[in-house]
Structures are given as structure tokens and as C-alpha cells.
Design a protein around this nucleic acid. Structure first.
Lengths: 246, 246
DNA sequence: CAGTGGTCTAGACCACTGC
DNA sequence: CAGTGGTCTAGACCACTGC
């Protein structure tokens, strides 16, 4: 009732052992040797066969359950989630989402200013009184057609921004280069109707549907680094995610 | 530089020790004895003081990091996330979201049928050929005003549904009573414009903004139990979530 | 009842951070 | 350099599941 898994463990690699197990199982799922619904070996057997301890195996399993690739049931076993559900999994991590927010398609800078934080922004970013913000709007396009209108505020005590660097690089790229390690983001997604200015910028009609997104991102020192308010053409963008029961 | 935490551990309780630690820290954060940004004791010290092993403490910390209450940095320490970010945290778990999908405000049943699965649904639910589905639409209202129009398909080999039970109970309530344990949900959120029928049902105007949500939910045996397509009045509803870097 | 995941211990050694 | 979290071991005992 269970499928033996062939995973190579390299003890001289700098990649942690549990993560090698994660990659091995991910790989086996991706290449089809672990089909949807397949039951895995039990944890103790797998640990013995790979010459790893059970806690190491469990750490790997925990990660895979968290990322939505496996489901576990006490007393029964662990199995691979259906391919239907796995299809868009890769979009659900903060990292990928931040990547998309900072890179890939072309982005043009529409406005830029360096100002004292408006009250609401000061609150959203929990800013000390002497910290100002960069405020700018950008237009994201993909394949030549406009996709999103993005307005952001970034605290100025962590990174130095100017128009030139924002024209050349993604926001998250710049922040990471400045040593910011993101840990958390609080996000709200809704809908609205395009007003005249939005419609013109996004090359659509006033009254068409837009997806709205507000996000505030936190780094590993607990600072709220940036907050943004974005609108996307609803015919070109939606948010996909996988929720995991905890 | 660190705050001693007073947590009571009850070794005779059926609640796992690591979860007592989670509850203790959550409680201390909620009642303010652990303020935003506070550094916690290091893991070894905390383990010794509570007379627990370090892995047990770490399991608790892992949970709190995953739920977005704490941020950790190697070589530095663990600290409490800012209250600004924590504010809407409780909405982000699958459980709460499912709760909201099945209960609370009043819900009326608009249509109900028990039919062979349309091709697209059969695919979304990865249904065997001999399994049919329940298909129904409901209107959710809160405080007397309509909020959402919900269309769902549920496989008929897991639970028996009829109009009467759906009028009396939430969908997820019924599914849980039938022994279904949800583990995962795949979700897509976007926007659209209300058409005439939607506008009438939701007591709004044609052309107003709606938030759209499609979801497929998976139980602990790996089955795709139900899929749904919902629209919400954008002026009354938005999705909030906390993304955690992994 | 046999099989499985869930919890827990008591360490060890390492990598990274900030001074 | 001292302090911190990150990884790993080799077990033990328990609770739940399905037959």
C-alpha cells in the first residue's frame, strides 16, 4: 500500500538534510513517480531507509504539508494531494508573490516624491516621528498591455530610493539589496470600479472591474518596511492561494 | 534585553505541552505583558525555566512564527510582531474562513438539485465516473442586507444533502458532522461587474463592483469534497490574510 | 490488534549576528 | 568573541484508525 521513494541524500552538501528530503519528494511528485493520492512509506521506515532520524523526516513532512503537497492522517498515513489542487500551488508563497511585485514584466514610474509621512501611513508603518517616506506610483505592464497601477510608501531609514533606481529595478529587488529580509505581509484583497484616471492609465474603460490589493510588509527585525495600494485589471489578474488547515 | 515570560504548564492536561506554550505566549501578547517588538528569552533559557525540552519550545515557536505573531532571526533572537500587522491575523486561517463560509449570518437557499457532475465540475473535484453532485445556490446576508451569492457543488458519496438540512445548517457544519476533516483549500480571488440578476439578488445596482472567489476544498483523505464560486458585494466584503515567508 | 502519525526528551554541534 | 537560532540524533511512549 505504500510506494518506496528513491531519494539521494548527500551528507557533504550544505543543503540541510531535511531540505534534501523535501526536494526529493517534491521532485518525485513533479516527475510523476509519486502519483496523486499515493500513500508514502511510514515515517519510521523512511527514516531507516534514508539513514536519517525520524525528527528529520518529520521536519521535511511538516514542510510539505504546510506547502500543500501532502496530507497526513493520524493512524492512517501520509499521501500526495491531488494534482488538481497542486496546480497553482507555487503562487501561494510570500516569496513568489513578492517576486511578482518587484520584477518580471515592465514597470514605468509615474510619480515620485520624498515627503513626511501622512498620518495614515505613519500609522500603517508604525513609524517613529522623525522618519519620512518615499511615495511613488508605478504602472506595471505585461506583454505591452497595462496590468496594474501601484502606489507605494517606503520608510526612508532603511533604504535610499530615487527615480533612477526605481526606473531600473524592482522595489523588492532594491529592498533586498539594501539588506531587508521580508518575513510577513498583511494583505487585503477586494474589488472596485475603474474611475476615469485609472481607466486611462490601464487602457480600459471607466466602470470596468478592478481587483484591489493593499499590503504592508514586515522584515526580520519586525519593522513595517513598506505599504502599498494596488489596482489590477480584473480581466488580466486574480490572486490564487492555497490555504492549509493548521 | 529580554522579557521573562510567566507561563503555567500543566503536565496532567490533555493539551500538548507545546500548545500550552503557544497559548501562553499568545495570551501574554494579547494582554499586553509581551508588547510589540519585545525580544523573548532565548529558546534554551525558556526551555529550562519551563522545565521543557528545547524541541518542545521550538515547536511552539514554529507555530507562532507560522501564524505571524513572532519573527525570528538567527544569531539575534525572537521578537513580537507589531500590533499593526497582528490586527487582522485571526481571519487568515483556513478554519476561520471555512467557519465564515458555513455559518454566522443568515443564509437562504435559492436553488437545489442533485445531478450528474458537469464535465468541468467532474474535473475540478477529480470525481470518479459514478459519483454525482449536489448543486445549489445560496444568498448570504448580514444584518438584513445581502452580502454574497454562493454557488456550490458537493460530491454525493461523502454526505447526504437535502434542501431541508441546507436551510437549517451551514454547508461546512453539515460536512463536518458527516465526518469530513478539511485540510486544504485552493482559492482564487478576483473582481467583476454585477449583471442584472446578481444586482437584484444582492440589492445593488448592475455595474457595481463584486469580489469573486472560487474555492475547492480537500479533506484529510485527499478527496476534493466541494467546489464553489461566490460573489460578494465589494462595498461590504474583502479578503484579509497574512502571508508568512517560508 | 497492528500500523500509523503525534508528542516529548536530552542532549550535540553548527552558522550566523553584532559588538 | 558571546549569544542566538538552525539542524540533527536516537530513542520513548502515546492516541488514533481501520480491520
Amino acid at each position: 500500500m505504500s510506494t518506496p521513494l528513491s531519494i539521494k541524500i548527500d551528507r557533504s552538501s550544505p543543503i540541510p538534510l531535511y531540505h534534501q528530503v523535501v526536494q526529493g519528494i517534491e521532485g518525485a511528485i513533479r516527475d510523476g513517480s509519486l502519483a496523486s493520492g499515493t500513500r508514502l512509506e511510514n515515517e519510521i521506515e523512511l527514516a531507516q531507509r534514508l539513514r536519517l532520524s525520524r525528527p528529520t523526516i518529520r521536519k521535511a513532512m511538516d514542510d510539505l504539508v504546510q506547502s500543500g503537497l501532502l496530507v497526513r492522517k493520524r493512524g492512517v498515513g501520509t499521501q500526495v494531494v491531488s494534482s488538481q489542487i497542486r496546480r497553482h500551488l507555487e503562487l501561494s508563497s510570500l516569496n513568489d508573490d513578492l517576486e511578482r511585485a518587484g520584477k518580471k514584466p515592465s514597470t514605468s514610474l509615474l510619480s515620485f516624491e520624498h515627503i513626511p509621512a501622512p498620518e495614515q501611513i505613519q500609522e500603517l508603518l508604525s513609524l517613529p516621528k522623525d522618519v519620512s517616506v518615499y511615495h511613488f506610483t508605478r504602472l506595471r505592464s505585461a506583454g505591452g498591455s497595462p496590468l496594474a497601477l501601484m502606489e507605494n510608501w517606503v520608510r526612508d531609514d532603511i533604504v535610499e530610493l530615487d527615480e533612477k533606481s526605481l526606473r531600473a529595478h524592482g522595489l523588492y529587488e532594491l529592498l533586498r539589496e539594501a539588506g531587508v529580509n521580508f518575513r510577513l505581509a498583511q494583505q487585503r484583497i477586494g474589488a472596485t470600479i475603474a474611475d476615469g484616471a485609472q481607466a486611462e492609465a490601464l487602457d480600459t474603460e471607466a466602470g470596468s472591474a478592478l481587483v484591489t490589493m493593499q499590503r504592508t510588509a514586515v522584515d526580520d527585525t519586525g519593522r513595517n518596511v513598506e505599504t502599498g495600494s494596488h489596482v489590477y485589471r480584473a480581466d488580466a489578474y486574480s490572486f490564487e492561494m492555497t490555504l492549509v488547515q493548521r
